[in-house]
Write a protein that binds this DNA or RNA. Structure first.
Lengths: 167, 167
DNA sequence: TAAAATAGTACCTATATCGAACTATTTCAA
DNA sequence: TTGAAATAGTTCGATATAGGTACTATTTTA
């Protein structure tokens, strides 16, 4: 129902912790330290960090004093990259497959062949992804704007005021 | 993973069918007619329509020639209303509860008490909801714009071109 | 009175998520 | 050289959610 998984949430707070640590001069943080900071189970946090590492978003050092660290500046780490590292491609419906969906869709959705709204759903998907991709880890830490900056000023007014006479 | 449920998808195509039917002069369409039009199982479509009806988005007439019809013009039926009629409130994370979340969150999320990004996540949630709420059934049928109008032109370029020397 | 439709709800199954665990490898220090 | 602490990769089980069905009641028309 249009929500991120817990693992994505945990990934975001873990990255937040790494960003704070880096600013405080800590070269790396272990999975244990991060898990304890947020009261999360260690094995789960380990799995999350492993996925972020495999996606190239964080680096790691092994061994006794090992741990994880950001590979990029928080200003360059986009939220969509984090989410997709954990969950795979962002798509609001099965008909939004990015990779050559034709035959895959036939298998997964019964209505696609006669669907009147597939095109629009795909565009909505792109817009949602662009929105998530718009922000970085740094934005997340600094605080996102709460105004829906992207909505044209007229949008709500138009739909409210349109009381066209229907004869 | 940030997707709508199938039931929401089916609700949207059902509403699309009702809008087309209304334009073609049909006062109502039965669950059977809609299910057959899209090759969907009848019991499922019946459930979806019942939920839309209970949410007040469509009206119904019972009996032999009964069926469903739109209660509002397609221009006034917003996508968020449809999704929320089927799935409940749109929220990308458990910490985005609309209704007096304080104690509910404590139960459902372990990190909220010490979370550094809850505020930003809530604002992101509002922005996503605003985006979904921006469009109507009429927009969906006419075709959504595919340009992500709200994304600043520089966003993607920045992340691609950044090849700063890392000494 | 029978048929066709909606209304409400309860139920089952399949899939995905949550979380834990296992084995292997790497690094450091005693 | 040996043990401890950490990451790497993978697999596995439990639980929650979603997808889909079924049952009973009510309404309307022929």
């Amino acid at each position: 129902m249009l929500n991120f998984t817990r693992k994505s949430d945990y990934a975001l707070v873990a990255l937040a912790k790494l960003a704070e640590g880096a600013k405080a001069g800590q070269p790396s943080l272990s999975a244990r330290e991060i898990a304890e900071a947020y009261n999360l189970p260690l094995p789960l946090m380990m799995n999350v960090l492993k996925r972020l590492h495999r996606a190239g978003l964080i680096g790691s050092t092994r061994g006794v004093h090992g741990g994880y660290f950001l590979n990029e500046e928080p200003e360059h780490l986009r939220l969509a990259a984090v989410i997709e590292a954990i969950e795979g491609p962002l798509q609001v419906a099965v008909c939004c497959q990015s990779s050559s969906g034709a035959e895959a869709e036939q298998r997964t959705c019964r209505v696609t062949p006669v669907c009147p709204i597939t095109g629009s759903i795909r565009r909505l998907n792109l817009q949602i992804r662009d929105l998530v991709n718009r922000y970085t880890l740094a934005d997340l830490l600094a605080g996102l704007p709460d105004g829906a900056g992207f909505v044209a000023e007229t949008d709500l007014v138009v739909s409210q005021s349109r009381t066209r006479a229907t004869p």
